[in-house]
Computed example of a mutant assay.
Amino acid sequence: MDRRTFLARTTVLAAVGLAGCTSTGTGDESDGDGGGDDGGEWSTDSGNGSGGSGQTITDRTFERTGECDQPSSATVTRDGDTVVVEGCIRGRNGCSVAVLDSVQYDAAEDRLSVVVATNVEREDDEVCTQALVSRGYEVRVEFENGLPGNVDVIHDGADGRSTVASSNATE
C-alpha cells in the first residue's frame, strides 16, 4: 500500500472515530424538547395572576439539591403562601443538571404547572460519564391571595416528558 492511500484511509477513519466526541457548542445542551433555565429569566405563561380568584405568583426559586435516590418522582407540599416541589429527575449523562424549564399558573383551571428539565453543563474540554444520573431539586413558588387548587409537576429529562406528580388542595 502506498503512503497516500494509507494517509487518506487513516484520516477518514480518525474523523469517523472522533465524530460526536468533540463539541463546538456552549456546553449547554438540552436533554429533551424543553431547554431550561435555573436562574434569571423565568417562563410564566398567560393566566399568571389575572384570574377570577385573584391569585398571583409573587416569587419563584429553584435550587439543585445534588444526587437523589428516587428518579422520576416529586412531592408537592403547601406551606403558608408557598407551593414547594421537591423532586428527582433523571439526566442522560454525568454532566446533566436539573433546570427549571417553566412555571405557569392557569387561573381558569386554578392549576399551577411546574416543568423541570435537564441540561448538560460542561466545559469544552470536559468529558461526561455516559451513565444515567439522578439529580435532585427544590422549587418554591410564592402566591398572593391564596394557593392554587391543583399542582402538576412535569419532568422533561432522559426518561422523556411526563407528569410525575399531581396534587389537589383537597387531598
Rank of each mutant, 00 (worst) to 15 (best):
T24S: 13
S50M: 02
N93M: 05
D38Q: 09
T58E: 12
A107E: 03
R161K: 15
G49Q: 09
T163W: 03
G35M: 06
R92Y: 08
T82I: 07
T58H: 10
T10C: 07
V153W: 00
E86M: 07
V83F: 07
D28F: 12
R111P: 02
G160Y: 03
L18G: 12
T44A: 07
D125A: 15
A74F: 00
S50D: 15
L132T: 04
T24M: 10
T163R: 14
R4A: 15
N93D: 14
W42Y: 12
D2T: 12
G52M: 09
D81M: 05
E138K: 15
D59Y: 04
G146E: 01
A131H: 05
R122T: 09
S167F: 12
T5I: 08
G17E: 06
S23P: 00
G66W: 00
T65M: 11
E171V: 14
V151M: 07
C68V: 02
Q70S: 15
A14H: 01
T163L: 10
S72K: 13
T65N: 08
T65F: 08
T118P: 00
Q55L: 10
G146K: 02
L7Q: 11
G146R: 02
D125Y: 14
F143L: 07
V99G: 00
A98H: 06
T44N: 00
V139Y: 06
S167P: 03
T26H: 08
E41P: 05
I89H: 06
C68A: 12
